[in-house]
Design a protein around this nucleic acid. Sequence first.
DNA 1: TATAGTTATCTAGATTAATAGACATTAAGG
DNA 2: CCTTAATGTCTATTAATCTAGATAACTATA
Lengths: 252, 252
Amino acid sequence: MVERQTGVALWRQIADRMRLAINNGDFDETGMMPPETVLAARFGVNRHTVRSAMATLADEGIVRAIQGVGTRIERRDRLRFPISRRTRFSQGLGNQAREIEGRMLEADTDVAPALVAQALGLAAGTPCVRMETVNSADKRPISRATHYFPSERFAGIAEAYEKTRSITAALRELGVSDYVRRSTEISAIHAEGDDMRHLKLSPGAIILVATAINTDLAGMPIQYSRTRFAADRVKLTVEPENDDIGDLGQSA
Amino acid sequence: MVERQTGVALWRQIADRMRLAINNGDFDETGMMPPETVLAARFGVNRHTVRSAMATLADEGIVRAIQGVGTRIERRDRLRFPISRRTRFSQGLGNQAREIEGRMLEADTDVAPALVAQALGLAAGTPCVRMETVNSADKRPISRATHYFPSERFAGIAEAYEKTRSITAALRELGVSDYVRRSTEISAIHAEGDDMRHLKLSPGAIILVATAINTDLAGMPIQYSRTRFAADRVKLTVEPENDDIGDLGQSA
DNA sequence: TATAGTTATCTAGATTAATAGACATTAAGG
DNA sequence: CCTTAATGTCTATTAATCTAGATAACTATA
């Protein structure tokens, strides 16, 4: 409930809490805010007070009220996803979300597509493990990725990922204690098909595509991945190369 | 300056800022707040608004207004200083202060006092490096410490500390990559002499004394220290033994 | 088309926050 | 003892915030 006499206006408290809830994905199912009367009852305030709060959120472009229909959620604050020489998914998101989850959709082994084989320095037709994953922050899907690993060296990667729910941890289980990013390419496309469904996007939504190659410390390519981010939920930040965090303990 | 129409009352903004300033030690020279009229002018508000802010600070016990004299600063919020198996000074204070500074007062080499020699498992008369340091948070002195290190192994510790301003970093330079706390004893005394002066305390002020022994990972004692905390500025929190916390926070 | 559910707008009043000014009270110092 | 410089208290006024209720406008749906 809201607190009175604290020197913070009720509409301000409500606006702050609703902004948090929205970024939390609390209203993801409908994409709409609860009606003003419901919110007023929930917070124990007058409907006009709720309207003041909504007005500021609308002013920030976070929601849009539609007469006769309701108040639609327009956008959320975007998570900052750092891209650097030592990009790690959950570590990168750090404390921006309370709960970061990785889930595997499917995995199989097949010959690498020509592009992938070339990127990993493999002969055409070399078999690779392909893994499809979805990553969520606070229950909200953030990105969907397709990973390729050379089968010869990483036959058990899918099982390791299932167990650890982390690429970094899975690679460690297979003897790769550390790895770095050789290259990252970023582009943008419109959402479609599977990605649209898994990321819970609407037609026309934008997807940021980051294509990356990781190598072990000897410089041997170990992973090719194509990650599709819901562009309305993240911003990618390219960071200065930072070598000197190497001595920090790897936390899972 | 203060912001209007933000949903946060002016008196609240002023109270928050003055509380910060007090904890910052901004008024340490006099121990008094500026007069209400001065603050009103500085913030561009009416004197009554400043009085509302001061009333809440007085209510929190942070200041006390004395008619005819002024408003005296009574106490500050205390920094929380965690004591655990992996106690590190600046890391422990974490984000409680913007700037954490260590300064060396003096250093010499002499035979260890009997108590120290016993604690470090040294023969009576073994020479030790003694270092006197002062630690400050946001320019306000927090603690004063006397450290003993066996000379044989840590002859250059004083120079390393001068360079790095950190015990942890200095030990690392001398080949101790990690260390743990074997024991901590806590007691309280009245401030006197040197400590009173360096910690900027008044007669009668309380000092918390923490006597600690640190060992390397092999269990060999490497450091005996006696740290005197200004009791009105810190609270020591003894934390559950936690082996795997490691060096996650990369605060330099 | 009628109805239900929703946001938009208006008026009125109560409460809180902020400004303005006058004067009382207290303590320290010349 | 008087002056000065502070805080304490009071009244009055204005602006911002919150409540209350009524009604209009709009959308989707049966």
